[in-house]
Amino acid sequence: MKEEEWLYTISSKKRLIDFNFKEIWRYKDLVLLFVKRDIVTVYKQTILGPLWYFVQPLLTSLIFTLIFNNLASIPTGNGMPPFLFNLAGITSWNYFKLCLTGTSNTFVKNQDIFGKVYFPRVVMPLSVVISNILKFGIQLLVFISFYIYFKYFTHSSTNALPQIEIVLLPIIIVLMGLLGLGFGMIISSMTTKYRDLTFLLTFAVQLLMYGSAVMYPISYFKEKLPNISWVVEYNPIAVIIETFRYITIGAGDFSLYKMLYVSLISVLVFLFGLIVFNKTEKSFIDTV
């Protein structure tokens, strides 16, 4: 018998991209169950429970409004309530941040389970991103309620209007997810050997927020700090947040070229993350 029919082959040889979609599809139920676990168990044994999903962005927006708009008087545009401006920034930033931090410890956090059973490892970060999309959905509802409040119950938001480009919202959500997932997978792969990155990450995420146009419009940054404006201008996350704000409340600028640039970067980061992740998953358990 020459070539026998083998269902699986485990080999020491590594292919660059070893992405078995069929296998991941077979584990789709696992992805959903992990999502359910994430959503259901986070706020178990808390008094406020799911209310925490609302409390955090609201309080942060409030503080940002006080500090950056009232105190430091960063302009948010004419007829644009600063609170709404900040809430838009924070809602989209939070989604990216949670995708990044949630996936960046995939290997270290799950070493117990990864050390015992095999399933496509990418199921884990994937489920993190999906559950974050759901959380983002909840926060989006909060944002919409406040938009309605400002629009119809106050007179301050004369210019806050959704733009026609809002049809791009799903693409923006996917792009942010890809970016968070891609960076998260790269970091999680590297932390299996070099634990330094864990410490760097918390710090870096905080710094990144200031460079991502969360609490200011990109145009204002360019005006005040023209020498280093490229930091924000070419930061894909800043572009996405600015775009999110533009399509939802019409604050800031929109550029199709920048969107294409961000799409390219996101896909590249995601693919690179996938390659690194695949390389790591084979034997990380020996080094973790």
Partner: peptide, 21 residues
């Protein structure tokens, strides 16, 4: 059970493997 990969060599199987490590 595919938790870690071998340094050299190959394993071939004709069925699904599940571990109860």
């Amino acid at each position: 059970s595919r938790v870690t990969s071998p340094t050299t060599g190959e394993i071939k199987m004709k069925g699904r493997i599940a571990s109860l490590l």
